[in-house]
């Protein structure tokens, strides 16, 4: 009972995150590609509750920021007039949860090198990145489970062929194939098509590792007493694989899943470099993260780590969720194996 309540709580957190991302247009104060060129590399906007007169406001307000002359991108607050945050305000492009008057800016997580609001980009970018990573994880695990399961269960020539092809997949310089794929595509690819392409490519490359892991477990699992017993009762091999052998790989699969999702999100940055990722100005966590691998951003613009923080937070909810599901599953599973 306690278990279920916990899963429920985690699922709620999970839902909240995805809701924010799904309804990015509502939660984000700005369009993700809107450039505020006078405010490039601005720090997160400070929310104030106490004004210059020492008066406390329940509704937070912000001061407009003005560029400081000199080296780099420096700004200071202009405390002469404050602008309150408006909730649920209607703008030309729909209703926004948070907004301020156009004289001031509301950059909750600061801005990037074009003066684009990182918070808004994070919400919009999460859509593509998380979806692509999840689909890719699903795809590579599906192929991995099928390949590893069949190889391990049936053994012999089937095993040899599948495992050698997994080695082939691991060894080939994919980068050239990706460049070739990019070359055969039209120059401009719509974000939705990019999404499908991304997940297909990542999924197709990522199955070899899980396949090896699962094959190892299956090799052992199919010789368990209860599997042999079922075989003795005349169950077909396919049935055995599906019903008795693969459930035992659940631990490996969940462990793989939670490690693959964040990795795949980051992998998109590499694909962007080859021209296969989400191109500017459309945001994705991958291309936002790739900015955070440069000396200048890491050393000067710490707030550009926001996608990293978001990815960690989301991955943690996945991890806890997967763990809880796995434990619940293991309970059912072990009950079954006794039966």
């Amino acid at each position: 009972m306690l278990m279920h309540r916990k899963i429920f709580a985690i699922a709620m957190a999970f839902a909240a995150v995805h809701c924010g991302i799904l309804f990015a247009g509502f939660f984000a104060p700005y369009m993700p590609s809107a450039q505020h060129r006078e405010h490039a590399y601005a720090r997160p906007t400070k929310l104030h509750f106490v004004d210059a007169q020492g008066q406390v406001h329940i509704r937070p307000f912000v001061y407009p920021s003005v560029p400081v002359e000199g080296e780099g991108f420096q700004y200071r607050e202009d405390p002469s007039s404050g602008y309150p945050i408006r909730f649920l305000s209607r703008k030309s492009d729909g209703i926004h949860l948070l907004a301020v008057d156009s004289q001031a800016d509301l950059f909750l997580f600061g801005t990037d090198g074009y003066g684009r609001d990182i918070f808004s980009r994070l919400l919009f970018g999460g859509r593509i990145s998380l979806l692509a990573a999840m689909v890719a994880t699903l795809l590579s695990l599906l192929i991995g489970v099928a390949a590893g399961g069949i190889a391990g269960h049936f053994g012999g020539a089937v095993d040899a062929v599948i495992m050698r092809s997994s080695e082939l997949v691991l060894a080939l310089p994919w980068i050239y194939l990706l460049l070739a794929i990019r070359g055969s595509l039209p120059l401009h690819v719509e974000p939705t098509r990019t999404l499908i392409l991304l997940s297909a490519v990542i999924g197709a490359m990522g199955w070899a590792r899980p396949a090896r892991l699962i094959r190892g477990v299956v090799l052992s699992a199919r010789e368990r007493p209860f599997v042999s017993a079922a075989r003795g009762f005349g169950a077909s091999e396919w049935y055995l694989l599906r019903r008795h052998v693969l459930p035992q790989t659940l631990g490996v699969i969940t462990a793989q899943a939670v490690t693959l999702i964040p990795q795949f999100v980051a992998a998109e940055a590499t694909l962007s470099f080859l021209g296969l990722g989400i191109g500017e100005p459309v945001p994705s966590w991958g291309n936002m993260l790739s900015a955070f691998q440069q000396f200048q951003t890491v050393s000067s613009y710490w707030w550009m780590a926001a996608p990293l923080v978001a990815l960690v937070a989301v991955s943690l909810t996945y991890f806890v969720l997967a763990d809880a599901l796995h434990q619940a599953g293991a309970r059912i599973n072990s009950g079954q194996s006794y039966a």
Binding site: T259, Q294, S299, V312
Partner: peptide
């Protein structure tokens, strides 16, 4: 463990390297 390993899994290798080099 799970918090730190999630952090590490999500950080791109290059960002991690850059931090250590800094």
């Amino acid at each position: 463990n799970s918090a730190i390993s999630t952090l590490l899994l999500s950080s791109p290798e290059l960002a991690l390297g850059m931090l250590f080099m800094l």
